[in-house]
């Protein structure tokens, strides 16, 4: 199918626009998360979302309104992951594992107590990049603007706690609050963006563009910008590739993301050899 024609469809325009916005968002947050060894937090919070669905069911929040239960639950759990790493001498990956398996277990028990679902709530919480509504594009714009604004506002503090938390503390930075801000923004992004593009894509967009940028960039600011750029390239390139090859879009974007990461690793070696 030719590109001009496929671009005339609204769902494609929305996929490219909302997808790019989410890619930027995830890439920027991803840089901080990967460096703080919390890269799997996207995956972990998706598991928690599973648990929260059961709670939504028990509280009789059906269909799309399940979000109003999932969002606060997932945000709380993101703080839980943070507290585990700070207080209990647990590493980031273990903390994510602990919270996410707890989330699933509680979800399974609640679902069983509730005696079944009223609808396939998963289908409401996990979206598809080809089926983004106009309202959801607006949501992506607002989400992206909010997160990027906050990240810009707290840029130096975020870099400082990522560089070294103790040094940040004795620079008078309230490290607890800044870390909380980071994981809360991540939780917000995971839940809302998952509703738009699905969990696989969120997880990939959080880790891959930032990891690729970390291979190449020298400074922090350039890493953030490069990660955002690579994320957008992957979304746009992957979407077009999926049109040409007639394969599912989300998975194609993930694959392209991986290829970009591979090239970045290769490119780093070339740079090092010079």
């Amino acid at each position: 199918m030719d590109i001009a024609e496929i671009l005339s469809y609204g769902f494609m325009q929305r996929a490219l626009l909302a997808g790019s916005l989410i890619a930027v968002l995830c890439a920027v947050l991803g840089c901080f998360l990967v460096l703080r060894r919390l890269s799997l937090i996207g995956d972990g919070l998706a598991h928690v979302t599973f648990g929260s669905v059961a709670l939504a069911l028990l509280l009789k929040f059906y269909a799309a309104s399940a979000l109003f239960v999932s969002l606060p639950v997932v945000m709380l759990c993101s703080l839980g992951i943070l507290k585990l790493t700070e207080r209990a001498r647990v590493t980031g990956d273990a903390a994510i594992g602990i919270v996410s398996s707890l989330g699933i277990a509680i979800g399974v028990i609640l679902a069983s107590l509730g005696g079944g679902f009223t609808a396939d709530l998963f289908s409401y919480l996990f979206g598809n990049i080809l089926a983004i509504s106009r309202a959801e594009v607006l949501l992506a714009v607002v989400l992206c603007a909010t997160v990027l604004l906050l990240v810009t506002f707290f840029y130096h503090e975020l870099v400082a706690i990522t560089f070294n938390e103790e040094l940040a503390r004795i620079s008078g930075i309230r490290t607890g609050r800044i870390s909380s801000l980071l994981v809360l923004l991540t939780a917000l992004t995971v839940v809302l963006a998952m509703k738009l593009v699905g969990i696989m894509l969120i997880s990939a967009l959080l880790i891959l563009p930032s990891s690729a940028a970390l291979q190449l960039a020298r400074g922090f600011r350039t890493t953030l910008l490069l990660a955002a750029l690579l994320g957008v390239i992957a979304v746009i390139g992957g979407t077009f590739a999926s049109v040409m090859l007639n394969i599912p879009t989300g998975a194609t974007i993930v694959l392209l993301n991986f290829m970009i990461f591979g090239l970045a690793c290769f490119g780093k070696r070339l740079l090092a050899q010079e």
Binding site: E157, V159, F163
Partner: peptide, 22 residues
């Protein structure tokens, strides 16, 4: 300290800039 920073993406200027925050 340098053990933790070897993979950190920051230029020399950016690292020193962090010292100004206090």
């Amino acid at each position: 300290f340098n053990l933790f920073t070897s993979n950190f993406p920051a230029t020399v200027t950016e690292v020193v800039r962090l010292g100004l925050l206090s």
